[in-house]
Amino acid sequence: MTGAINELKRRLGPETLALAGFLVCLVAAFSALSPRFLSVANFNSMAFQLPVLGLLTLAMLAPILSGGLNLAIIFTANMSGLTLAWVLIQMGGTEAGLAAFAIGCLAAIVVGAAAGCVMGLVVAYTGAHPILVSLAMMIFLRGLGEFLTRGGDISGFPEFVGKIGHGSLLGVPVPLLVFGAVAIGWHFMLKFSRHGFSVYMIGSNIRASEYSGIPTARTLTLIYTLSGVLCAIAGILMVTRFNSVRVGHGEALLLVTVLACFLGGVDPFGGFGRVAPVAVALVILQVLSSGLNLLGANQHLSTAVWGLFLILVMVLRHVIARIRMIFGKRKEV
């Protein structure tokens, strides 16, 4: 029985347990400080805010695992949102029907996948550094988007679009359902599919993977494509949340997604990292910002607290690793 518990501990990793523990403390502290924290309203507001950041973070996670990075996630999401908006407007604007929305979503996903696919192909076949490739893609998408929208907002969608973004199914906000489904799918893809296995191996050592018969070029292309698809889903959610599209919307989230990955214990050099701890890390970030907001703190201050918190985590991790090393050495003697 203890064996099973230890096995569970090993599987979850001390990282996830520590993060979850911290999350519990955080929730307790905010509940004590503000009576409104543990309310349905607050839960709902968090559940509506978290998914966009969450989807973008998962879109960032997979390329990082493969030893790369995708800096174009925000503008890929914007571009996909723009595609959806264009389809809706072409098919009747405020009068557009559900079919138009479905076609728009499909088109948005195709656009997101295409942006990712191009990046993946370039990374896989030219060996160019993913930071440069995705940076170039980001600048291209931003420029293109601003040119198409003249830098303004696009709105005028049918009423039901907003209802999807703000609606609930069986009491659970739709965006949260979408995020939950994607996160579970992502978890299975990374942990149990051949493709996911290849991503981890490539992240650790691409040449050794090649020498072991892993289709490295195909895997890299696919992982950036899938990252683009996730961006597109995030972009669609943004349309339904804000009822408008603007290129540059959510730009501030880009680096937060990178940090959320590292907070979730992802190795910045690739090869190691899992979905579960990253999801917990996301919830922590959301609780921090919502809690501070309830306490009346300025929104900008809560961004600063995020940064401070992440620095603290890095230092803490280093200290813990050092302590482990010292004790580990003693044990060997």
């Binding site: 051949r194 981890y200 650790s204 050592n205 040449r207 050794a208 993977s209 072991s212």
Partner: peptide, 21 residues
């Protein structure tokens, strides 16, 4: 060290890498 094995990854992963099917 650099081609035969993926040193950081597990023994299990290094064994099944060639025969995922």
């Amino acid at each position: 060290l650099t081609l035969g094995l993926i040193q950081q990854q597990s023994i299990a992963a290094n064994i099944v890498i060639t025969v995922l099917k």
